[in-house]
Computed example of a mutant assay.
Amino acid sequence: MSVAVTTAIIAVKTIILLLGSGVTYIAYKAYRRTGARSLRVLAIGFGTITLGALLAGIANQLLGVTLEQGILINSLLVALGLAIIMYSLYLER
């Protein structure tokens, strides 16, 4: 893989980590303010998606996991995170 592609992946994963952490924090802060269980579950869902990006990046860059395996790790955690988010939208207050 070229240095430019590796650098771009690291940059995008860093942006995803920062934005995902921000959204997770805001959702958790809203949960703490309101006590709404759905907001807690929403924060967990966004946290799971963010964790997927982080773990896939670490696995690929530091642990020698192939790009395809990293994409699989990321995709599995994004799917799980979206399922959690969908569940949070159906919770009653």
Score class of each variant (00 low, 15 high):
residue 31 Y to C: 03
residue 70 G to H: 02
residue 66 T to W: 10
residue 11 A to K: 09
residue 24 T to R: 02
residue 3 V to H: 14
residue 42 L to S: 02
residue 21 S to Y: 08
residue 63 L to N: 14
residue 15 I to K: 08
residue 90 Y to M: 12
residue 76 L to Q: 06
residue 65 V to F: 12
residue 26 I to V: 15
residue 84 I to R: 00
residue 19 L to E: 14
residue 30 A to S: 14
residue 32 R to N: 08
residue 83 A to M: 08
residue 82 L to W: 06
residue 25 Y to Q: 08
residue 42 L to G: 00
residue 47 G to T: 04
residue 50 T to C: 08
residue 65 V to Y: 10
residue 35 G to V: 11
residue 18 L to E: 11
residue 41 V to Q: 01
residue 73 I to S: 00
residue 61 Q to D: 13
residue 52 G to H: 01
residue 43 A to K: 02
residue 47 G to I: 03
residue 80 L to H: 02
residue 48 T to G: 02
residue 47 G to D: 03
residue 45 G to I: 02
residue 66 T to K: 08
residue 93 R to N: 08
residue 1 M to L: 09
residue 52 G to P: 01
residue 34 T to G: 07
residue 34 T to K: 10
residue 11 A to M: 11
residue 59 A to Y: 08
residue 51 L to E: 00
residue 57 G to I: 02
residue 21 S to K: 03
residue 37 R to E: 11
residue 66 T to S: 15
residue 30 A to E: 14
residue 76 L to N: 08
residue 38 S to V: 01
residue 35 G to D: 04
residue 28 Y to I: 05
residue 54 L to E: 03
residue 47 G to A: 06
residue 83 A to E: 06
residue 57 G to Q: 01
residue 85 I to R: 00
residue 65 V to W: 11
residue 3 V to P: 03
residue 72 L to C: 01
residue 36 A to T: 06
residue 16 I to Q: 12
residue 66 T to M: 11
residue 57 G to D: 04
residue 24 T to I: 07
residue 72 L to Q: 06
residue 61 Q to T: 15
residue 46 F to C: 06
residue 26 I to T: 13
residue 57 G to S: 09
residue 73 I to T: 04
residue 80 L to T: 06
residue 55 L to D: 04
residue 23 V to M: 11
residue 19 L to M: 14
residue 34 T to L: 13
residue 61 Q to R: 13
residue 57 G to N: 03
residue 18 L to M: 14
residue 38 S to Q: 13
residue 1 M to P: 05
residue 7 T to M: 08
residue 55 L to P: 03
residue 62 L to N: 13
residue 12 V to N: 08
residue 81 G to H: 00
residue 16 I to H: 15
residue 29 K to C: 07
residue 78 V to P: 00
residue 69 Q to G: 13
residue 40 R to E: 10
residue 38 S to H: 09
residue 57 G to E: 01
residue 42 L to M: 13
residue 77 L to Q: 03
residue 14 T to H: 10
residue 71 I to L: 09
residue 88 S to G: 05
residue 56 A to R: 03
residue 5 V to H: 10
residue 13 K to G: 09
residue 79 A to N: 04
residue 6 T to S: 10
residue 16 I to D: 11
residue 52 G to W: 00
residue 31 Y to F: 15
residue 92 E to W: 08
residue 77 L to C: 05
residue 16 I to K: 05
residue 38 S to M: 05
residue 68 E to N: 06
residue 51 L to R: 01
residue 6 T to F: 01
residue 38 S to W: 05
residue 10 I to Y: 07
